[in-house]
Amino acid sequence: MLYFILKKLAQVIPTLLGLSVLIFLMIHMVPGDPAEMMLGERANENSLRELRHQLGLDQPLYVQYGKFMGRLVQGDLGRALRTNEKITKEIKEHFPATLELSMVAIIIAIVLGMLAGIISATKQYSIFDYGSMLLSLVGVSMPIFWLGLVLMIIFSIKLAWLPLSGRLSYDIVLEPITNLYLVDSLLQGNWAAFKDALWHIIMPAITLSTVPMAIIARMTRSSMLEVLRQDYIRTAKAKGLAPRIIHYKHALRNALIPVVTIIGLQFSILLGGAILTETIFAWPGIGSWLLNAVYARDFNAVQGGTMLIALVFVLINVLVDITYAWINPRIKV
């Protein structure tokens, strides 16, 4: 198993390396001079030269890349141009918010999506089947940045049930431990903070979970239907097993195999969707941080943030491969 994990990790190194080259080149070869873009067109030649030197832009590309990679392997992503803070520090501050949001969203998506898919498959052509499949068709096509706004209008403005944006109300005090507010408040037994954090996360998490939920529901349904046609299901019936055991033990375990792959792919949608969701709900995560870096033309931060998200994404895929091997005994580990 350890060998398998190491092999999988080794396989992603070239991809990450290529990605670093790609992002690096994009920043340095695209028309326009970053120094000029940052200082504006009316900047004088001296300050431009100084900034170029400071950024190392006056050196050959391969030297610049070498330095960039040298720092990268030491875990140093450089400084954000707009705040002059270390990028790693800024990421550390913003990452827990994104992690918390994504985790809640993917849990909602997996639980509700798989449940809908399983019930639809076992009750094929029922009202529930038609209803949930229609909903998931709409869900797959949903512009989530619009859905977020609509939820805000309904639940915050018209009904005033849920807070409009942010992670926590101003009057709530919470000691940071992990910076995952739901976890921190539970650890401290701070129920007021937990409830407040929960109320704040509901709308963004539902918004973010919509597309993955719909895709997981559709995939689970078709995978279950495929499995229910298999000979071994007939064997299970001939054994006298009850439908519940046949569906949830014999069928689901097999149907999960393709679903796990699909769930892995959802993280791409989730991390991309986090940028939109965080922007709408003023969620102080890595997505809105990255977008602000884009607006401010802070290329160091964009470079660092993108590399980090790519790294997370690639590692999640390794994790999915491991899960896949674990639930499918036919894969040699």
Binding site: D231, Y232, T235
Partner: peptide, 8 residues
């Protein structure tokens, strides 16, 4: 070949 459940 197909009548036994592959994951158990």
């Amino acid at each position: 070949m197909t009548s036994l459940n592959p994951v158990f």
